[in-house]
Design a protein around this nucleic acid. Structure first.
Lengths: 197, 197
DNA sequence: TAGGTGATGGGACTCGGTCCCATCGCAGTG
DNA sequence: CACTGCGATGGGACCGAGTCCCATCACCTA
């Protein structure tokens, strides 16, 4: 009997991703996902708050890792390096063995605006975590908000490049490169003298 | 008879905001909004793609204005000043007479994460419009993305400050101040030498 | 062997959203 | 003054997401 087989949550996640890839997000019903995992609709909603959330399970752990990395960095570390530390804390989630899953997940999300909304919400929470951690270190309000936004942009770009089908570079290398590039752009942007009002 | 009274779209928007303020977003049904506007559920969905969208009607016009402002700026204008031009293009939407509406709208959105998701999506589209317009002017990819993100952050901050209950400053003044502050922070962030890998 | 506990199954229900068709009001036309 | 075409509305059937409640099952412990 299907009841009491292990890891119902993980089974649901796998079933959902497979069905989303096969038939698309909208054409897939929650009952269908549950069926494929040998469970029911009730159980699905006991493990996930809604249909979208089945694709975003790891995001909370990610945010925790970001905050922790910034908080435990040595005193006096520059903001850019704090961002680097945060991005690297995500490395365990992006090993080469998860490359295919990451690519599929990205494809599914890219095809549906509901899922994009959810991803943006997760990123906003990520930015909030980063900004909070920076504020705890004494970074002024606006500087913390900007750095958090840059960090999230860097993370999103790095994730996108890592998940590219033909990518072979490891995530940490990509993250460093993206962050360095963004830092340079920030310098350019900040150096421009604003026109007199 | 209620049929054929003018401005059904605007009536629906007013009815929705009023009910959201009174009972909250979730406790309000689409049928209830339509009733209050003297219309039906069918008509509601003929004017708005979904329940959330009734609060985000102006966002598309906003994005158009942003793109237009950047495209029509004099050649050679610095990126920061292009962002300033874009933010000022939004000024007509934020006259003092709309202050109360803006404040109510913000309160409703702040209380519901579904609405926050939609707002984030709209802002992402805004960022995409800005980045596209900057690319058209020859701004390199990464610089355009960063500048767009900064622009959206500036807009969000300016809108939030403008909609504060006790705010009396006009929107353009706030926008300029926020942007100047962010430019300074970008300079700081970019000036930090990254630690050697 | 008899509970006790936590996870699951299952069904009823509400509401968002889609679809289709009948209906209405307003032209314009003869 | 009818007739007709057109666009907007009303209304009902329908599906799926999500909630709620309760019965049921498997495992553990006394």
């Amino acid at each position: 009997m299907a009841r009491w087989e292990p890891n119902p949550r993980e089974r649901l996640e796998r079933a959902a991703l497979a069905l989303f890839v096969e038939h698309g997000y909208e054409a897939t019903t929650v009952a269908g996902i549950a069926d494929r995992a040998g469970l029911t609709k009730s159980t699905f909603f006991r493990h996930f708050a809604d249909k979208r959330e089945v694709l975003f399970g790891g995001q909370d752990a990610l945010a925790d890792g970001f905050g922790e990395a910034i908080r435990t960095a040595p005193p006096g570390t520059a903001s850019v390096d704090l961002l680097a530390a945060a991005l690297l804390a995500a490395a365990p989630f992006f090993g080469p063995e998860r490359h295919d899953l990451g690519r599929q997940r990205r494809t599914v999300i890219a095809a549906n605006s509901e899922l994009q909304e959810r991803e943006l919400l997760k990123r906003a929470r990520l930015a909030a975590v980063i900004a909070d951690a920076l504020r705890e270190r004494g970074t002024p309000e606006t500087a913390a908000r900007l750095a958090a936004e840059v960090g999230v942009l860097a993370f999103g770009t790095a994730y996108a490049r890592w998940a590219e089908p033909d990518n072979r570079q490891p995530y940490p290398q990509i993250a460093h490169a993206v962050l360095a590039e963004l830092r340079a752009c920030a310098a350019d942007l900040g150096a421009q003298a604003p026109a007199p009002a």
